[in-house]
Design a protein around this nucleic acid. Structure first.
Lengths: 347, 347
DNA sequence: TTGTACGCGTTATCAA
DNA sequence: TTGATAACGCGTACAA
């Protein structure tokens, strides 16, 4: 906890000299003094006070990572494996670049803004913004901002975004499912916004292209809140019997559905084909192993952080960055069953 | 970005008055001025500069969360679902108490120390410390420290720790397995330190108590690195055939093993019983659903943060806090098979 | 009740 | 090459 002033006093020189040595401004200070100071710094294990430094330089070396929590899903966003992996990528990149990461989670855009100004963060990574949230932030915060997974068309005009080709992902998967012989394919999700909507569009597109008519009831809307989940799952299982395949919006839902179906004695993929999206551990460890759409979540975080870092250095960056997806064909999608379930149901 | 000085100038009063209003020192300022300042603050959306505040008060309102990364497992610790949930609990508690959380991940205890002093954090939560790491930190850092899951006996004398009764957890589970009729029970893990060792001890204790002899080969040591995992899994499956049950050190390994066994045509629990530890999504969504030992990871983070917060307020806290475990009996442990596998193998 | 002035630790400017 | 000194924004002791 020793200060520059203290060091200067003990060494009988000015703070300027000490500061210059610390910052390697070798031209400004004689070889002799440089050595003395260096040695002393080493000896006392000098650590700069970042608050003072920030105050003097008006920069913070902090990159703010603000997560906008949604009400329904996890009570705490970090627990979402997706978010955890994302943050992992961000943190690593930021740290290696000599910056610090400060995490802030809130439902309230106003609070996020206050947090950002109070800490005077040098740049901002935003995740979970909906509607015009992002626009509101970028209107007031004048330093670099990079968003992750923003689906607001209007918002995309205002700031840099790192996203995923969600639509193409489901489109290709559903196309694959159709190529296996299916023509009664449901889509399962818990809402129709953001990511979920983009993925839904890919599904619709593939259906349309194959001349399969989409009806509203083909959207299986799960209610994931713990009080309702059992009841909702029962309904999902029942309704999915009208189909030979279900395209799930995420691996989590795919595996959840498979468990529920399995509990009801329905075998996968013989009874029904299931596809997921994300390609995480949940699906790869399940048996039968899940056929799914791969995305590199960590990479998303890395790219977002790298882009921000570039902007901090004044470099120009692409405005919209879209990461690719890839089909991962495993064991849960196969040719459709020939007979319908429950006898009384057939189309 | 308006400052107190600026506000004072515009309002034709002193910075002290403004500051007093901001800090609600109502006794110190007249009703009239108070109203004026309040309104103005609202209007210009004043946000204090935390760097300046910290510098003036010599406190930071930051709680440092330092994770010591181990070399072998995840490249980035946050991606570990366990760590994610832990941080979730910590973050929530810290935020609600009006503090900020700054995350720092490093393999190097020295770097962690420098980080802590540079930011002048008010308190420290440490996770992943091994050997005398914790002692070295607490010797140099004189503010409150709370560790999570420290297994160094020596270390426990030096600082507050929040841990889990790991030994009791496996002890009770293995006792349960034995009560189902098993007497050839293996233990699977990737190392013999820290948590893994504690859990191993519970296993040994239960065996001993039941008069079952433990041989070194009963320890199934998995090599989880991706280059070796397939080969290692092959070996695990082969060796586990000598047993009727396997106590796995984590749900992840339990599910990994079940998948591998399933791929080789061995049914669970008919062919072999499997138990896990942690009780996370991996096990609850798998089919058959995993019998496991429950621990409340989020709660661990919450308790650690609460304890630190108390210490910050000068309150006394317990030195060692041990959270309980609970058996979660599901479908992967049953009575042992009667015949041995592979014909040629029998004991 | 209000205001002046200083200190917190650092960096930057400018004069010596 | 070196050293005073001001500035960053805030809190507070002390004076008015």
């Amino acid at each position: 906890m020793i200060t520059i002033k203290e060091i200067a006093a003990q060494l009988n020189m000015s703070t300027t000299t000490v500061s210059n040595v610390i910052h390697g401004k070798d031209g400004e200070v004689s070889e002799a003094k440089r050595a003395i100071v260096r040695e002393f710094l080493e000896k006392v294990d000098y650590v700069p006070n970042i608050n003072a430094r920030n105050l003097a330089q008006n920069e913070s070396k902090i990159i703010g990572v603000a997560l906008k929590a949604r009400a329904d899903k996890y009570e705490n966003l970090i627990m979402d494996p997706f978010v955890a992996e994302l943050i992992g990528g961000i943190e690593e990149t930021i740290r290696n670049a000599g910056y610090f990461m400060m995490l802030y989670i809130s439902r309230d855009t106003e609070k996020i803004m206050r947090y950002v100004s109070t800490w005077n963060v040098d740049g901002l990574i935003l995740f979970g913004m909906i509607g015009d949230d992002g626009i509101r932030v970028s209107a007031r915060y004048k330093k670099p901002i990079v968003c992750i997974d923003t689906y607001s068309i209007e918002g995309l005009k205002h700031f840099t975004n790192v996203g995923l080709d969600d639509e193409k992902g489901t489109y290709e998967m559903v196309k694959y499912i159709i190529s296996c012989g299916h023509n009664r394919i449901a889509f399962m999700s818990d809402n129709t916004n953001g990511v979920d909507y983009a993925r839904f569009c890919g599904y619709r597109k593939a259906l349309e292209e194959a001349g399969i008519e989409y009806k509203e009831e083909d959207f299986l809307k799960i209610r994931p809140r713990s009080e309702e989940i059992e009841e909702s799952l029962e309904e999902m299982c029942l309704r999915s019997m009208d189909y030979t395949a279900v395209m799930c919006v995420s691996d989590l839902y795919a595996v959840t559905l498979m468990s529920a179906l399995s509990d009801r004695g329905i075998r996968i993929p013989e009874g029904i084909s299931i596809a997921g999206f994300d390609d995480n551990m949940l699906g790869s460890l399940y048996r039968p192993a899940l056929t799914t759409v791969h995305q590199d979540v960590k990479q998303k975080g890395v790219v977002a952080a790298q882009t921000l870092l570039k902007q901090l250095k004044g470099e120009k960056t692409e405005h919209q960055i879209t990461l690719p997806t890839r089909l991962v064909i495993r064991d849960t999608v196969t040719t459709p069953r020939k007979t319908s379930f429950y006898g009384y149901k057939n189309h």
